[in-house]
Design a protein around this nucleic acid. Sequence first.
DNA 1: GTCAGTAAGTTACGATCCGATACCTACTGC
DNA 2: GCAGTAGGTATCGGATCGTAACTTACTGAC
Lengths: 119, 119
Amino acid sequence: MKPDHPEADCPMILILERVANKWAVLVVAALWKETLRFNELKRVVGGVSQKMLSQTLKALERDGLITRKVTPTVPVTVEYTITPLGKTLAQTMDALRIWSADHIGEVVAARAAFDARDI
Amino acid sequence: MKPDHPEADCPMILILERVANKWAVLVVAALWKETLRFNELKRVVGGVSQKMLSQTLKALERDGLITRKVTPTVPVTVEYTITPLGKTLAQTMDALRIWSADHIGEVVAARAAFDARDI
DNA sequence: GTCAGTAAGTTACGATCCGATACCTACTGC
DNA sequence: GCAGTAGGTATCGGATCGTAACTTACTGAC
């Protein structure tokens, strides 16, 4: 993104760089409902590798969307909680979950029709 | 995404694979307002390479979110138009644009605070 | 007639990112 | 002292991304 382009400092681009990402969306959605620990999150999200989860959580924490709380039990437990800011984002993203549920059929049908054309 | 996982066939995952992507979001947003040609779109979106634009448009067309109309002028012009289905998605994603505008300051502040901690 | 230009891509290739797997630390219970 | 648990990090191969050059098919200027 070149700085001389008018859209370069568009807030949406900055946000999209972080949020237009499957794992970030799924983690925020999972934490919307409840505080979760690392491995709980891994189970709930499903399909995420430890590396990507760790990376995603770090990025979300940096952006103030979640907080990380270490409790010195044995072994140490780490709780991830959504912040008020993250909650407003989660609500916004939830609209996408609803859209998905409502329109998945149309998308799958369009995909099938497209693939049938010009085999 | 393993098929034996309960979340595997969650509609949101399928949609996210396509939509959780900067260029797709920006293209849909651009076409929401008006039909555009390939190079117009390239200018409007800003920072996208021809390859990624071509790839993104192909994917969005496959999913029935936009249509591609070739007019045999010289040189050939190709118009991309959003579909009714795409329009509903664009409206949903517009909520994210509004969220970005409203909260970009908080995110940037959180990022700065995080980076200041533990240099 | 040939040289530059335009629209809409495609190709080649290097850089970066993602995912699977293995490993690490610090402690517990057996 | 050996396996197990929580929360990660390290490594490496394959997929994806971005940059730059090339392609096709035609137009208008010289």
